[in-house]
Design a binder for these strands. Structure first.
Lengths: 210, 210, 210, 210
DNA sequence: GATGAATGAGGTTTCATTCAT
DNA sequence: CATGAATGAAACCTCATTCAT
């Protein structure tokens, strides 16, 4: 009687085999695409399964429920984003170029990393209301963003002419996020490069007093 | 059996009696509150009707469906917001106070007008995906915001040190919106007044070069 | 929120498994019975599902709505009817018996094939008002009936003493249909065999002048 | 305490005043038209009231429910029909014209009296399933029709060459009803006059052996 | 009396999730 | 294991009928 040997309690499979991993991935990809195209609520599990080329039954052996894939998509999205930003930061620090250049590159990088998730981002904030876990994930993502912004700013701390660094980080992070979002989402009538130029201008003036 | 598509035309009730107007209003109020508290998708028509103190039947004699109230709430929300901003602009223009003061007041006003719609705002952008009409309404709201920002900036045009006014208006509008949103929504760990101070700082530096 | 009209396309299930086919059939059978017993409007989808021993959900995975099963029932009904008539025609042509006998057998056959659909038939004509598709199906059924009558009459064309064969076919078809209906539905106080005898008499006199 | 003087129990008003009678009539007319256009189930009380130019409230002070107007419409329809037929019979008996002429006139008269009720007739038979009272009314209408046919046939009894008069009356009544219905409803591709000619032919051959 | 707003039971329909095959 | 059929709770919506004004 070695029943306790394995906890049958964990419903969803932890993929160990290659095929299994591939299937799981296919589902996440499909879900990501559909959520981003039609939103969470207008996407149903049947559609996700179909788009991933599996049966609804299979879907439920990889994920406990719809929310579960959503969290996964969220996670992956977040990690991809952060990795991209981190890479950019590392590159920029090394190069030690002038401030305007650094900010400009940073923003370009953000625009690039945002692009694949057009509109998905917007759905996210709406989902905060729906679920405690989602709220926490989003808040921790937000925190990470804010922290990274702060650290990034601290790299040039002695050149900054702002007094309240912490608050500034929030303001910068929000401004950049929203303008980048607007650029990616389709610029409200004004071409992307002009928006980007002004955003950089604003940040340079604000942070370095010209 | 709706092939011979009857033009019933007597669909939603046009209020003739006083009571009717009150009921309709109660429904809109209730819907606004619930949408803002729990989001659109987690609110159902029964709940809205109950919260308004009416039957589901009544709900459907004033609105064709949930989306219909949503549009109404959106409209009212938008109008209230714009009226508030317009009033502030009028007041500020008259007073002719110094630039930092003007911006600071403006932002304070935005914070005030945003507050009743906490989190509702976030839902909206997600809804763009779901519906053409909503998309149009939101886009026209966005346009109005951008245009007002532009006009507001033009009031001090000769003092501005930005080259691309149009792009600047977008950048300013987005930045202000998102930071105000963050402030109202609960400041990401940093007190509201500090965020506000930095936002004002950023705008002053950017727009007037100190 | 159905403006962006999604082509879900995976609407009604196309049976792949055996079980599926059985379920679909059970639903159609149940629907046919209930429609015939209580009429279309007094039968609801829940009742159909229950009578078929399935859930409402299942009902909707096989049919888009109540009208959809109705069309199916109509189709099956019609086919069964026509097959029965065709078989009788084939049999009669072969036997080459005398005219009165042929007509008598034909009518007997119609009575037999009508019987399982007692009263269902009556509902149908009322439904013409409700739906374009139903109108078309019924009209095409009617046409088929009229055409078959015409062909049947043409088998004995040289013995017929009617001038306007086409009009005669309509008159005969209508008369036979309505009297058979009355016989099956319960003969208005007069026993079935007497009605049948007179109907045959009428047709023989009319078509062959005694 | 003269409460018993008047039975307050009869909810619906018995119109004694002129205006009252007019209103009631307007409702019945409106109902008749709508039922005939769209069928009983696709017509709602609000529509009937609106079409009659009264409020839904008023509707319910003249009729206990929707079924109640239906019965009224049915009654009036039936009476109008019978009166028309009776008038025709009276006229024809007097004139004493030849048999073919008599039948031809009779049928013409039926076509005339049917016309205003196009398609309404079809709804009726479907309603038999719905309601005991309706069944009884329809059955008694049917009986009246059959009886009248019988009487009409008896006027020329000594010329008839049918043996089973009672059954013949049913057969004739059904045949005439259904062909007239078809003519009025739009002749299934064959012009009305040709159908009528054949119908008359059939009856003459059957009843008088040429 | 007349009005039309309000009611709510009852119908339709969807879809996340389970489970027999 | 995979499949997709089955489930049913929960949402949506209608309309005959009542009732306050």
């Amino acid at each position: 009687m070695n029943e306790t040997e394995e906890q049958t309690a964990d419903k969803t499979r932890k993929p160990r085999q290659d095929r299994s991993i591939k299937t799981r991935d296919a589902i996440v990809q499909a879900a990501a695409r559909l959520f981003s195209e039609k939103g969470y609520h207008r996407t149903n599990t049947k559609q996700i399964a179909a788009a991933a080329g599996v049966s609804t039954g299979s879907f439920y052996s990889y994920f406990t429920d719809k929310r579960d894939v959503f969290l996964d998509v969220l996670q992956i999205h977040s990690e991809a984003m952060q990795a991209h930003v981190d890479a950019t930061v590392a590159q920029l620090s090394a190069k030690q170029s002038d401030k305007r250049m650094v900010i400009s590159h940073m923003i370009e990088s953000l625009i690039q990393s945002h692009t694949p998730y057009i509109s998905y981002h917007r759905e996210l904030s709406a989902m905060r209301l729906a679920d405690e876990t989602i709220r926490e994930m989003l808040d921790s993502q937000y925190d990470a963003g804010r922290r990274k912004t702060l650290e990034f700013m601290k790299l040039s701390e002695h050149d900054l002419c702002v007094s309240d660094l912490e608050a500034a980080a929030v303001v910068v992070f929000e401004s950049v996020s929203s303008v980048v979002d607007r650029i990616v989402f389709s610029g409200g009538g004004v071409p992307a490069d002009r928006l980007k130029a002004e955003l950089v201008d604003m940040l340079v003036h604000y942070l370095f007093g010209e």
